[in-house]
Design a protein around this nucleic acid. Structure first.
Length: 184
DNA sequence: AATTATTTCAACCGCATCGCT
DNA sequence: TAGCGATGCGGTTGAAATAAT
């Protein structure tokens, strides 16, 4: 797999949290060239990151149509329904939740829903709010069967795309992605 | 106010799959 | 068709944030 590109000199590879500067570089590069060919993208953009890392950062965080903020009750129901159907096929599930990433859904499941299941098991009388075994197919089944993933293709104007996709409750903590789009 | 425990989530890792030669 | 590189996916980790004591 991760083959060494050069035998003689090992390229420096950064790991860990992305800096604002790296985010900017990645966004600028993708804004100009589009996404894809992640390894060469990482090299050409001058990022000391692996292509994998760039892809993950873009898809899970920087991409304009990534929705941030709380999972809604509808989304939660949908996640439970789809998980009951497909199991841990997070990317498949994510395709039915526009703007949500597989990573986000996976994390959400592991933290919130599993916790509720555990609580429900310990306390069956209070388990009415969330019950993953009780699928609510009437609400979501038709939608789930129509597999129409939102198009990830590069449209050429990322900033417009981002503005259109801005969540209304985007008062998230720390510096946010929208801050980056307005940087010179 | 300080310390400890718990939760959250961004990012990494390894494996599987795909497409090209 | 085997070999190889690129990409995608799911599991896992660990640092930061938050809650509890």
């Amino acid at each position: 797999m991760d083959k060494k590109p050069g035998r003689s000199q090992e390229p420096e590879v950064r790991k860990g949290p992305w800096t604002m500067e790296e985010d900017l570089i990645l966004m600028n590069y993708i804004g100009n060239h589009g996404e894809g060919e992640w390894n060469s993208l990482a090299r050409s953009a001058g990022l000391k990151r692996t292509g994998k890392s760039c892809r993950l950062r873009w898809l899970n965080y920087l991409k304009p149509d990534v929705r941030r903020g709380n999972i809604t009750a509808e989304e939660q129901l949908l996640i439970m329904e789809l998980h009951a159907r497909w199991g841990n096929r997070w990317s498949k599930i994510a395709k039915h939740l526009p703007g949500r990433t597989d990573n986000e859904i996976k994390n959400y499941w592991r933290t919130k829903i599993r916790k509720h299941i555990k609580e429900a098991e310990n306390n069956p009388s209070q388990s009415s709010e969330i019950n993953p075994e009780q699928t609510t197919s009437s609400q979501v089944s038709s939608d789930a069967n129509a597999v129409e993933p939102c198009s990830p293709t590069y449209t050429g104007n990322l900033q417009e795309a981002w503005m259109g996709a801005l969540p209304t409750e985007s008062n998230d903590s720390f510096w946010s992605v929208e801050d980056l789009w307005y940087m010179p």
